[in-house]
Design a protein around this nucleic acid. Structure first.
Length: 318
RNA sequence: GCCGAGGUGGCAGAGGCGGUCAACGCACCCGUCUGAAAAACGGGCUAUGUCGGUUCGAUUCCGACCCUCGGCA
């Protein structure tokens, strides 16, 4: 059978800051439109990070597998992909996501990409040119001792134009500078440039709400997770995983690890954690403008949430 | 009531022996983003308790008042 235009793959994307109910909506939509979910979340990929990453609501029926969960009878790809302590990156996400989309599409189902990691979603949809340029651990180790200023000088010698093009934020950002140098030093730079991206019909739904609304919801969410054993989850992880790795994850894994180690009073840690979550919500919101043709809905307004389903109905039937 | 200490931005808290004062952190707001992205990084916001006095000039010196915290009663 020949493929017609109708066979062009479709992808539904749901993006939004934490606590906007992305997963719950995705599950609802997956049931309604015969879909499967792909989690675009840099922390949910780890096994054992369940409560803190909010993989699912407590009321959901869950069946865990390596690399995916079945939640309320819906398959969610991208959970428990690797063990805690390991490194993950966008590049791996792109590969994983592509494979998942392909396999879901083959089943005749609708792939639904949902997550709060804007960088992953953007790269997946529009491509990541430098994807082929791998990380160079030895180089990174030696560069990690240098200051941002020193790194910048190094980059300027390698590629003055590139150095001059950096914005004020990146000039002071050691991590970004190291990566930029890494790309410059890559011997097969041109050959490795990759322009692969998702090809097909895309529908992007953004979920949001006013800051204060999300802050309140996030604080409540955290209190609930604490009652549900979040601290124990982290203590358990600390038995097998380096605490530096844990705290490099940020948010709950950082602050509760610190308090568990006695480096911070628990009350203080929770307070700071809430502040960090609020800041994270703000940062996530700035990603909305990175997506083309995104339709943004305010979840604090009931009318708008009803529009979402209708909107997607059109996309699916098209 | 008396004695002592003190009142600095939304909070916390430095400094300043009179000269556009005003750090850092937290909160809040805005932003950056091509292999760590819940990371990393950039920018912004608001202040000297009140009223007088001395002085060219007061956040800094003097006085009164108000308030807070200790101690004595």
């Amino acid at each position: 059978m020949k493929k017609t235009k109708k066979d062009k793959p479709k992808l539904l994307v749901i993006y939004g800051p934490t606590v906007t109910g992305k997963t719950a909506l995705a599950i609802k939509l997956a049931k309604k439109f015969n879909g499967e979910i792909i989690s675009a979340d840099s922390r949910q990929v780890y096994k054992g990070l369940d409560i803190g990453t909010g993989k699912v609501n407590f009321s959901s029926k869950v069946e865990k597998h390596q690399g995916y969960w079945i939640v309320d009878d819906i398959k969610v790809h991208g959970f428990d992909v690797l063990n805690p302590g390991k490194q993950y990156s966008v590049s791996e996400f792109i590969d994983y996501g592509s494979k998942s989309v392909t396999s879901i599409t083959k089943l005749g189902k609708l792939p639904i990409l949902v997550g709060g990691t804007g960088f992953y979603i953007k790269s997946f949809l529009y491509g990541l040119e430098s994807q082929g340029i791998r990380k160079n651990t030895r180089l990174r180790n030696s560069l990690s001792k240098l200051s941002a200023l020193q790194l910048f000088e190094k980059l300027r010698k390698l590629n003055p134009q590139k150095a001059a093009s950096l914005n004020r934020s990146d000039v002071n950002n050691p991590r970004r500078l190291i990566r930029t140098i890494e790309i410059e030093k890559s011997t097969s730079k041109q050959a490795n440039l990759n322009t692969q991206r998702f090809v097909g019909k895309i529908k992007i739904i953004g979920l949001t709400a006013p800051n204060e609304y999300l802050y309140r919801k996030a604080d409540k969410w955290l209190e609930d997770r604490l009652k549900a054993g979040l601290a124990d989850e982290i203590k358990k992880l600390m038995e097998t995983v380096d605490s530096h790795w844990l705290s490099s994850l940020g948010l709950e894994y950082k602050w509760l690890a610190l308090s568990s180690l006695g480096k911070k009073e628990t009350v203080e840690a929770i307070k700071r954690l809430k502040g960090d979550i609020h800041a994270y919500i703000r940062r996530q919101k700035t990603w909305f403008k990175q997506f083309k043709n995104i339709m943004i809905y305010d979840i604090s307004k009931k009318e708008e949430t009803e529009l979402v389903v209708r909107n997607i109905e059109n996309f699916v039937k098209n």
